[in-house]
Design a protein around this nucleic acid. Structure first.
Lengths: 214, 214
DNA sequence: ATGCAAATATAGACAGCGTCAAGATGCCTT
DNA sequence: AAGGCATCTTGACGCTGTCTATATTTGCAT
């Protein structure tokens, strides 16, 4: 007697093959991390959450680490859509002013804080020190950074930013600032959420001044 | 027959009471984290490393979390000694220039990178989101930050930095930068260690320019 | 259509984890 | 000497990641 015969009498028919497991695992993982923190995510809870046995996920992800990698990849997709949309456009931005920088900073921080479950994985030590880091994942991150550097180079050629600025160094330092603010907010060290806007604007002012330096 | 009688014939006499367990646990914990990463630290391995049974540490620390808190506290002690030594002195620094800022930045990054096992705990989410965070620990962190802000206020009063600078915002943003750089280096996202000095100097330039802003 | 391989799901087992409860041992005070 | 207290030990529990072996289903080749 097959299981489907047993469950046939109930309203919910649960097929042996789940059909959409990989996708649902990724979503459920992100949800679990968001709600209970990364530490609370276990393969077993995850499997239970989507209604399969504890070892089923291992047919879609070789490892817990591999699963987390895939979640991070999803994160990078969202990141690109939200943050780099305007920077990635074919025609380089014709205007660059403090307001534009402010907007970019707010977008970045917003993404990090409101998608902490992804941000943690994307730019956390777990992934980057783990050797498991996919080439495609590493590429995705480096590409995002390169786009940022190239943007500055482009502005510089168009005489929109000072020629004394080293685009690579500026990119490294300013990204550090954004990452640092994000981490301090996510980790609960900066608690005053009222101050986020003021901090972002102060950073924008600092960046802008640096870009205009004589 | 007591255990000491058994081991009396060997060169190593192991008394029932360890005598110095708490101290050794803290040191061994830092070592284990340094060598194998925070994730690899387990209470059982730790106990084994210092030669006691698995539950012995629980007589000195109520929790694994409590143990980590204590390690972080040790970290803050070292942090203050190394980084804020010059800033904490009674007489405020009479000179403040880009070189001084460079030095401070390098000290900070140096500490973070070379004491990653402490830095992770001191400024990582594990601690700060855990409710277990001791009042004294939180105080230690806030004091460090306050010293930083007050230093800037002091310089401002002495007309050494522009009056247009908001000390609190400047402190928040510049600390974010330092924290971000540290994290990116520790987590292996910034790999080029050659570039650390150049990045630090670029940051110093940025900070200095901001402080001198008209 | 039939049969067989591949994909997918399952239960069982193992070592390691944090930590609680009960008991053993040694030190210190009275 | 006695007894209380700090310290350390063993035993146990439920949780974890993941290996192995087994069962079910799908899809393709015949």
């Amino acid at each position: 007697m097959s299981k489907s015969e047993i469950s046939a009498c109930t309203t919910e028919v649960k097929p042996y093959h789940h059909g959409d497991l990989r996708r649902q695992l990724l979503d459920a993982a992100a949800n679990l991390i968001r709600e209970e923190g990364e530490a609370a995510l276990s393969m077993r809870k995850l499997a239970l959450a989507v209604g399969v046995s504890r070892t089923a996920p291992y047919h879609h992800f070789s490892d817990k680490q591999a699963l987390l990698c895939a979640v991070a990849e999803e994160g990078f997709r969202r990141f690109r859509r939200i943050v780099t949309t305007r920077l990635d456009t074919a025609e380089p931005a014709v205007v660059i002013d403090e307001a534009a920088i402010r907007l970019f900073i707010r977008r970045y921080i917003d993404f990090a804080v409101n998608n902490a479950e992804y941000y943690d994985l994307m730019f956390g030590g777990h992934l980057w020190k783990s050797e498991q880091l996919t080439a495609s994942l590493k590429g995705e991150a480096y590409t995002s950074f390169k786009v940022y550097v190239d943007q500055i180079r482009c502005w510089q050629k168009a005489r929109l930013v000072s020629s004394t600025v080293d685009p690579l160094r500026y990119a490294q330092v300013s990204w550090s600032t954004l990452h640092g603010m994000s981490r301090l907010l996510i980790d609960g060290i900066y608690l005053d959420s009222e101050a986020v806007a003021a901090m972002s604007d102060a950073a924008a002012n600092m960046f802008w001044q640096q870009l205009q330096a004589a």
